[in-house]
Design a protein around this nucleic acid. Sequence first.
DNA 1: TTGCTGGTGGCACCCGGTGTCACTAACGTC
DNA 2: GACGTTAGTGACACCGGGTGCCACCAGCAA
Lengths: 200, 200
Amino acid sequence: MTAVLEDARENTRARIEQAALELFSRQRFENVTTDEVADAAGISRRTFFRYFATKADAVWGDFAAHVDRLAALLDATGDDQPVLSSICAAYVEVNDYSLDELPMLRQRMRLILGEPALQAHSQVRYNEVDRVVAEHVARRTGARPEALVPRLVATSTRAAATTAFEVWIADGRRPLARALHDAFEQLAEGFPTLRGPGRR
Amino acid sequence: MTAVLEDARENTRARIEQAALELFSRQRFENVTTDEVADAAGISRRTFFRYFATKADAVWGDFAAHVDRLAALLDATGDDQPVLSSICAAYVEVNDYSLDELPMLRQRMRLILGEPALQAHSQVRYNEVDRVVAEHVARRTGARPEALVPRLVATSTRAAATTAFEVWIADGRRPLARALHDAFEQLAEGFPTLRGPGRR
DNA sequence: TTGCTGGTGGCACCCGGTGTCACTAACGTC
DNA sequence: GACGTTAGTGACACCGGGTGCCACCAGCAA
């Protein structure tokens, strides 16, 4: 493909994403048709579905790249730190956006976590993340990736990450990295606060 | 409503569920239309959607009752046992099916955990469970249900439960209650197997 | 000019889901 | 036993997400 065309495609893709994010945020996901998004982006409905497989995908940006980065970070981690620390660090690093990108991330996550249709769609995406994490745990512990512990670590760390996101969205003052660390610490220590303030 | 009609409704509902479960298992969820399910159940498509709000709901049976039972079990739990033990016990109890009901449960869960469209739909259902569990944790710890720890406990215990279900589906020899206990123990102890076999 | 390539729009179609209306069977009332 | 009421049902039209197909049109090479 020509460089010119490639640029045009990237441009169009970005325009669609932007239009989708804005319309979905303003009028709720279900109340916006793909026709309206396409119109706002200056393309036809048919073309919308050439850039994004589903209406929901326009919200997720390039999530595959996200997962790839997570996998690379986990691969590069040393065997000296605890497994959960590696996973936490990878989650923090992969979500380390610059200050001017944060509003966009907030908007995205507010949609993904708040709109039921997008919440449903997210499960499919999370599976890719879980697979990557389970494989890392399997490598570190020598277990099979399909065994209980690798799967469990993958799903519960992901639960920790999404919960941290929810708290971050709702609160606003607490930095995302802080919420992630708090959640992972609870998980790694077996929920110390459940045992009451005094005891350990 | 008359007793006769009520019986007829229950009967029809059961017939739809059965037809749906069988068709979805045999030909995959996406390859079966609601028209086909309706035909197999001897009703019209329109009537199918009077019994179940979505195609996916036909797989879930009476899930609201399930959630209510879970809530009741959590309400009835004593303050003497650890919070995670209460939740584990409630999950075990609510999934304690008799031997002749097990094949149906297996079929249901195999669909829910295996079919992407149903996996997506499940997220919405799990939210109800998470709400109930988070409220219980909040009551036990004095925190707000929207705070990090109650939410995190809810999502990660649910992650433990679904992972246990996955292992149970895949393995077949390990009883479900056993898988649930194993998963919850890992969670409660902060994943002891991650720290290697020797150390604690 | 000719031919190829790849993005695009329009169209018809499938399927899940909903609103509406007319029909019918069961029930209570006089 | 005729009556209106009530609730389940089926048929139909419609909407919106998603897909297959084809015709069109740029950009490019020979």
